[in-house]
Design a protein around this nucleic acid. Structure first.
Length: 633
RNA sequence: GGUCCCGUAGCUCAGCAGGAUAGAGCGACAGAUUCCUAAUCUGUAGGUCAGAGGUUCAAAUCCUCUCGGGACCGCCA
């Protein structure tokens, strides 16, 4: 029984009543389900309501109304119940003694920042992994969504009695980071006035690569410039090739019929591209492994530093950054595969042909496979590529085993919807590693479609076209961005119009909520001091009671949001709370008797307690969302 | 071919565990400021909850199918 949550309190009381009635043979049931109370949608139906009789009617083989009457009679005897009635098909509606509500104010003031906490987690540990953006470029606006939802979810679960580890997985192994290193190297060469150095078509062209290259030059000077002869020749050949191409193009224009020339030019450009990337390949070979590794590590650090700055600005906290490279180097993949081997879940076989449109070049090959179909996956998945290296999936299994081994009871991953096809196999792997238990929960966050003035913006790191998160933060700040992302469910695709968001700041609901908090504090500032709980009996107005009931339902909201892993519920709760407070405020504008200040001393004292309680709940709620609660605006 | 998400007011979205007459903001319209912060409030208009079946005392909510929108299928990351 939780005295802080009035809904669970009466739910438990009603369950106890039902159990007693069952023992006495008044309800023919062996097993009594738990009862839940909720605020009815329509306040004319009372203050607390339960559909308990409707739920039990069928198993008890009793008419719901009759059952409701029996229960209602006993509920009427409970402490704090003012009136009970049976309505509709068999709802039990209750009204509490006014004092019961007024006492909640004292609860809130006593609990302070702990108000809203619950203990459904019972100290279980959960690892929440979010953002985990590749270290190949700065965060862009779309990354923010998963990060914000993950971070708020972590806050929410922490408030619900779970032990939380907030984690970011850095994909700093594999081909992509080598490509990044090479791109940085090319920029580095350019900075040393080597005009022929060029970033290849599959590499990273954006400005941030140049920034990293500049930092590299500052840190290492010309020390990485050990180009060998083939490399220099490659550049020379490239140069000659370009001149030859220009001549050739000119001659095509002169000698071929006009309608054919574009066609031939297209082919020519394809060939040119192939040649250049082959030459680039050679250039990359001209970079020693040691130097490549050094540049790569430097580039990853440099970019991760920027990412960490962005996260800090977004008020996102990460407890642990896990490195894929370290994991692989430490032999974690082999260990994970061994674990699965011992369970007889690994075999060599030929995977099924994928149904993807892009699988034209697919060929059957014998490979090391994981028996993920044993855990509900569609096909068994490849662990080892034909060249003997591990697949991304294999290292991911190792990573998840690592998370489990560090003592997490449950793993929650916040992934973008584009990884949806990956969920089943990952859940299979975690189930296999943890003895068949389903303790990986993947929350898919639908994609953010970036728009600018109604036009979609194509997001591509490799093409260099993306809206940087830092630009969005410069324009609107973390509070607005966080609130926008949290006032919709994660499983709904959203359009994010850059122009709209940066302009429409004033009617963003975040200000509505923050303003309520600031208003509350402006009142409290005028009359600081001790309050007396005795005076709370003076709160009798409908608007005040409505506000109190909403404040009292905060713990219930936190609990429900945590159980459903839906932080957005808190945002909507706060908007509603702010609305009730603003409405009450404005009634004071029309009727001086309803003002917080300047009324009779005891009443004023009681109202100030109500205002303070409101401020506390607003602050706690905004805290879950990671949004600031300013005392003035 | 298959998997996942979505479809609720003109727009953006909620709808709490299936529950009582489906809600909010924006936009539109009509109002409120000598007075605790008008970044506020009060009111009006606006709905076949995509469609069709099914389960149930009760369906926007659960199940099936259809239509529409999005994401995805691999030895990529």
């Amino acid at each position: 029984m939780n005295p802080m949550n009035i809904f669970t309190h009466y739910g438990a009381e009603i369950t106890a009543i039902a159990e007693k009635l069952a023992r006495d043979g008044k309800i023919p049931l062996d097993e009594i389900p738990p009862a839940y109370c909720e605020p009815p949608r329509d306040s004319s139906h009372g203050e607390l309501s339960t559909n308990y009789a409707l739920i039990m009617a069928r198993p008890a083989k009793m008419p719901p109304k009759e059952l409701a009457e029996i229960l209602a009679k006993a509920i009427g005897e409970l402490d704090g119940i003012d009136s009970v009635s049976v309505a509709g098909a068999g709802f039990i509606n209750m009204t509490l003694e006014r004092q019961k509500w007024q006492e909640r104010i004292t609860d809130i003031l006593k609990a302070g920042e702990k108000w809203g906490n619950n203990n459904i987690g019972k100290g279980q540990s959960i690892n929440v992994e979010y953002v985990s953006a590749n270290p190949t470029g700065p965060l862009h606006a779309a990354h923010a969504r998963g990060g914000i939802i993950g971070d708020s979810l972590a806050n929410l679960l922490e408030k619900s009695g779970y032990k939380i580890t907030r984690e970011y997985y850095i994909n700093d192994a594999g081909n992509q980071v080598d490509v990044l290193a090479h791109s940085v190297y090319m920029r580095y060469l350019q900075l040393l006035e080597d005009e022929t150095a060029k970033v290849g078509k599959d590499e990273y062209p954006s400005d941030y690569v140049m920034e990293t290259a500049k930092n590299l030059l500052d840190a290492r000077g010309r020390g990485l410039l050990n180009r060998n002869l083939p490399e220099v020749s490659a550049m020379f050949i490239k140069d000659i090739m370009r001149k030859a191409e220009r001549d050739l193009e000119q001659s095509i224009i002169e000698n071929f019929p006009k309608n054919l020339a574009p066609f031939i030019n297209t082919i020519l450009r394809e060939v040119e591209g192939e040649l250049e990337s082959s030459i680039d390949e050679q250039l990359r070979d001209g970079l020693s492994d040691e130097n490549l590794a050094e540049i790569r590590d430097f580039a990853i650090d440099d970019i991760m530093q920027g990412i960490k700055e962005d996260l800090a600005r977004l008020n996102i906290h990460i407890d642990r950054f896990s490195s894929e490279r370290e994991l692989v180097a430490g032999g974690a993949v082999e260990k994970a595969v061994d674990t699965l081997k011992k369970k007889d879940l690994i075999y060599d076989g030929i995977p099924k042909k994928p149904k993807s449109d892009k699988a034209e070049d697919w060929e059957p090959r014998k490979q090391m496979l994981f028996r993920s179909t044993a855990f509900g996956d569609d096909v068994d998945r490849t662990l080892k590529k034909s060249d003997g290296s591990w697949t991304y999936f294999a290292t991911d299994i190792a990573y998840h085993l690592d998370k489990l081994n560090r003592g997490s009871d449950t793993l929650i991953n916040i992934w973008g919807a584009d990884h949806g096809g990956y969920v089943k196999r990952m859940k299979s792997a975690v189930a296999a590693l943890s003895g068949g238990e389903d303790n990986l929960n993947v929350q898919l966050v639908q994609l953010v479609k970036l728009m600018d003035k109604g036009e979609p913006v194509k997001m591509s790191k490799r093409a260099g076209t993306f809206v940087a998160l830092s630009d969005v933060l410069d324009a609107v700040g973390a509070d607005i961005l966080r609130f926008i992302m949290l006032t919709r469910r994660g499983d709904q695709a959203m359009d994010f119009d850059y122009a709209e968001v940066t302009q429409q700041t004033r009617d963003n609901p975040v200000f509505y909520v923050q303003y309520a908090h600031a208003r509350a504090h402006s009142v409290l500032n005028q009359k600081p001091g001790e309050r007396d709980a005795k005076n709370l009996v003076r709160l009798t107005d409908d608007g005040e009671m409505q506000l109190i009931r909403h404040l009292a339902s905060f713990p219930r909201q936190v609990e429900a949001a945590a159980e459903n892993l839906e932080p957005h519920r808190i945002a909507f709760y706060l908007i509603e709370l702010a609305g009730l407070f603003h409405a009450l405020w404005n009634r004071g504008r029309e009727d001086a008797h309803l003002r917080f200040l300047g009324v009779e001393a005891e009443l004023e004292d009681a109202r100030l307690q109500l205002v303070e309680a409101t401020a506390i709940v607003l602050q706690n709620g905004l805290g879950i969302l990671g949004v600031s609660a300013p005392k003035e605006m």
